[in-house]
Amino acid sequence: MITKADVERVANLACIELNDKELQEFTLQLGAILEYFDELSDIEAQPPKKEEENVLRPDEVTTSLPQKEALANAPRVDSGYFRGPRIL
């Protein structure tokens, strides 16, 4: 059975902050859904080893998005760059 601690761990991995109410609700709901997924446990078939073919294209230089357009949707921009959050 999935516990609150499991959901907290997964939320941390997925970078989604949960409040206490959400944590409680998701623990119950995820538990019920995972219990349903247990019907897969007796599947013995192995996933087929696919012989996928690589899809290649000629390495040709084409025009790329102009800087102004590339930055147009960015919430924070600084001197022509995307501005991310600090690392530490």
């Binding site: 970078c15 989604i16 902050e17 960015a74 919430p75 924070r76 959050p85 600090r86």
Partner: peptide, 24 residues
Amino acid sequence: SGIVYGYRADRDQNWHTTFSEDRA
């Protein structure tokens, strides 16, 4: 992640907190 596009609150936290809060 709210860097190239998408929702971003204007807070100055570290990257993990920023991403986690904005995705929430």
